[in-house]
Design a protein around this nucleic acid. Sequence first.
DNA 1: CGGGAACGAATTGTCGACACTTGGGGGCGA
DNA 2: TCGCCCCCAAGTGTCGACAATTCGTTCCCG
Lengths: 217, 217
Amino acid sequence: MSSTRHRTESFVPAVQRELERMIAVGELKGGERINESALAIKLGMSRAPIREACRSLEQTGLLRSEINRGFFVREISMKEALDIYDLRAHICEMAGRLAAAAVTAEQLDEFDALVEQMEAAAEANDVGSYYPLNVDFHTRIITVADNHYLAQIWPALESSLHLFRTRSFILPGSLRASNYDHRAFVAAMRSGDAQGAGRLLSEHILKGKARLLRTVE
Amino acid sequence: MSSTRHRTESFVPAVQRELERMIAVGELKGGERINESALAIKLGMSRAPIREACRSLEQTGLLRSEINRGFFVREISMKEALDIYDLRAHICEMAGRLAAAAVTAEQLDEFDALVEQMEAAAEANDVGSYYPLNVDFHTRIITVADNHYLAQIWPALESSLHLFRTRSFILPGSLRASNYDHRAFVAAMRSGDAQGAGRLLSEHILKGKARLLRTVE
DNA sequence: CGGGAACGAATTGTCGACACTTGGGGGCGA
DNA sequence: TCGCCCCCAAGTGTCGACAATTCGTTCCCG
């Protein structure tokens, strides 16, 4: 992105990641407009790759576009956040089921390792460590499920929740409970209980939804 | 798109629709490369909006991009096609359930009207009429389900099947059977049986998958 | 003192140009 | 004859520019 590395990787994916990061971290807030020129200068490139990246993110639901006004960080209503949880839960039922049927012994060990890491983070109430591990855990399930289109739509559901400041909804006390679910899910996979694994994972998401609802009241 | 209508609608959505059409109709075939310059000339515009539209379609899964080689129409393997059916079926279970719970009397009548139109097309073995009606029917279910993210991911699943020449898989005889499912689904919605509606819709998709499988053997 | 039109700055949507990369064909050596 | 390398055409990735549009502000009129 700096200067003279030519044509070995397109700018577009980099911009895409950068925008996702800015949104996830809160540098860009819901409803805010993307200033293409300013971002282009900041990243040391022209507006063309910026706009292409924005088009991508528009399709994933992170941005929206208004004619002649450019791209805006999408704002997500409470209803939409709950919509996402419902859909994620339903999709996870399938993902968990497929993953349980396809998971290998090595993968199971990797899941165990992740759970242990999360356990440590949960004990320390270290949300900053827990969060990415949690994302990794769920992404890995999708990967193991081995359904191309499942993997394709997952990022949209995952990243859109960033619009809602997900982190603030992870109450310190809930980390342990959340990881308890993970452990149970892995156990179900290990025992070959596909149906159960799917159900557990779905319920796990719905608990997250319930936590969200509780924080609003 | 012609000449001097300025800035009342962006070119990008138009290009997007045009590319989708070309793919659906078969003017662009799986694996084929999008020649940006040629398409730009053909549509009477520069390459910028073309590329932005391609980025969008890349995200939806209709195109893929290779560094320094541009955009290609995505090819879809048999496994991926079956993946889509599985995912569609699972998602439709939810969509049907939600739709049944939210549908209004007027909407039910609209569904009935659609079913009648499809019935006529089925009787006449007119796949060309049946197909868009069928797409409309399912899209409408998603709309009625009223889950924003459900509606967002649906087009990707819907359009990706175009890559597989869906039409050829609609065997003449299957139109009636397919519409029989539609009728049963609407009936379930009307009777307020949300669970049943979801199940019926899911099974309806799985029958499509089964038909696809049968055509290969 | 308030509302609205008109001006100007800021920003988007699109364009044409250019450097670089890729793929293919012809020529050269073996 | 076969294989390799070089060169060239085709085409992408990115850039800078420009017209059209939006937004904020000022100014005018009531």
